[in-house]
Design a protein around this nucleic acid. Sequence first.
RNA 1: GGGCACGUAGCUCAGUCCGGAAAGAGCGUCGGACUUCUAAUCCGACGGUCGUGGGUUCAAAUCCCAUCGUGCCCGCCA
Length: 595
Amino acid sequence: MFLSLRAEVEAALEAALAELEFPTDDLGIEEPPEDVESVLASSVAFRLASEAGAPPPQVAGRLAESIDADELTYVAEIQTQGPYLNFLPSDAYFAQTLETATDKSYGALEDRETSVVVEHTSANPTGPVHVGRARNPIIGDAVANLLEFAGYDVDRHYYVNDAGRQIATFTWAYETFDESDLETEPERDRIEYDLVRYYRIGNAFLEDGPEDEVEAAEAEIESIMQGLESGDEEAYERVSEVVDQVLSGMKGCLERLPAEFDEFVKETRFMRNEATDDVVERLKELDEAVYEDEAWQLELEDHGLDNNLVFLRSDGTSLYATRDLAHHEWKFDNYDRAVTILGEDHKLQAKQITTTLELLGTDTDDLRQVLYSYVNLPEGKMSTRRGTGVDLDDLLDEAIDRAREEVEDRLDDRIRDDDLDEDDIERIAHQVGIGAVRYDIVSKQPTKAITFEWEQALDFEAQSAPYVQYVHARCCGILEEAGLDPETDLAAQDIELDALDADLLETQAERDLLETIARLPAVIDEAADDLEPHQIATYTREFADRFNAFYRECPVLADDVDTEVRAARLALVAASKHTVANALSILGVEPPRSM
RNA sequence: GGGCACGUAGCUCAGUCCGGAAAGAGCGUCGGACUUCUAAUCCGACGGUCGUGGGUUCAAAUCCCAUCGUGCCCGCCA
């Protein structure tokens, strides 16, 4: 409803400005501070003062007079407060908000008939997912959810690097070493924990093995890469045996978040179908192409990039960037827009790709990157190859364990007599534990650096998931107590919606809550435009504050509450439930029915 | 050395893109509230030269310039 109100205010203000012969290019629309009653304001009078030859408050007054609030649906009144114009919401604004928000899909925006591919995670299939890159699936999944909710047709892709030197090395190590060569046991009973040991021992061997043997190994690795390059089926199968196994394990880990994908797109796909060769041929034709030191490169200085981009090695093999160009052209053959979630260390590479795609004739306006800074340990970087780092599995296990302890601790002093059984405790431990980890990461701006510390990552207090989840549980508790099903649209249940009267919600707490609910679609719209899911997290926190104020001040089911007020408040609770459930689901945080 | 990002309360962060209403949360500290729909909650107090210095503007945490600190990047790696 907020979006409609804003559109209405903009139109009215623009008309008023035109009528008074003022410029209409900047309406100065803004959201007022909390202690102001209006839902929308304008500071346009400041800018008009000199032109009007009158002080801002007078200009504001003239503008307010020239807008007739009676002609507006969602605005009841226009007040001036000094130089500011304040637009106060009408009864219709509240009534329509209450009505639309009792639908369980509240907040979902209209279909935009635009497809978008969100590529995220894309971690090399070399071993267990560690916390250093855990930001990627968590942010990526939230961005995908957000775009979906905002009306886009979304596919989620994981780009599998199965053609690089790392994977060739892994394949060689896997084929060369035996279980008996390994000095350690797998840290966990899942395939990637088993196989990463070969990768690590292989890398160690290449670093300080006997010189002649290392040379032979390098030659073998080189031949695997040449095989892949020439589309040799045998090389592909050898590599696949490693890649597919490791990837299936990593997939298992990511499903715990859960982060799921529509497609795992392999790099080799673009070698096997010759798209990469085609890209190479076209790159050679570019004015920027040079053949230097026996390698083909692109000079991108004129495009603001100092370093040359090598796209064909002197041995004739392609590079990651070359294949990624073919990959991106394929994306735009199949989707209207493409979004990639990337670590900040890939920023330069992303710029090179974008610039080069443009040179190849792809319009890159619809290609956007979300960059996040890596999570490091206090003692330094995490590395799969060296085996330093905290596994995401361990973090999730620990989070669930701690959440379980919390539930059990609280069991004794519960007031509510709802008998949580073992399944409930386990369910809550999972929802809260994993929710807390995700919320902690998704609620911060991705560009901020994070140093991983256990205590901080597992802090359930603070402004964390459980705080917001608790509000959802409270909503469900009230609805269930009233004999309603929280998961179902209110309209489909045994409650007189027609008789529902938003006017009965007259306390400040009720009005504030309803105003906050009204903003959800606008928040989703803007967060989706900006690709910033943390805006949703900020919103959930504010929403929870508002709901708790309502909860404190407005009993719903108490005996002395008038029947009609009770119905109106129940509707408000149902609307709140859908609002918080949907906002949390965008963040990938589960909304518990009880906790 | 060059490029990019970040710097807001003791700590963790919103707000910065798009300048406007005496800077907002949470944690921590201190003091209060459970015969009432779940106290993982709520109420109150304390806490700030928005890194620093200039500039633009009626108005700057927000825009511009400079500077300091931290991180990332500058491979025929991915």
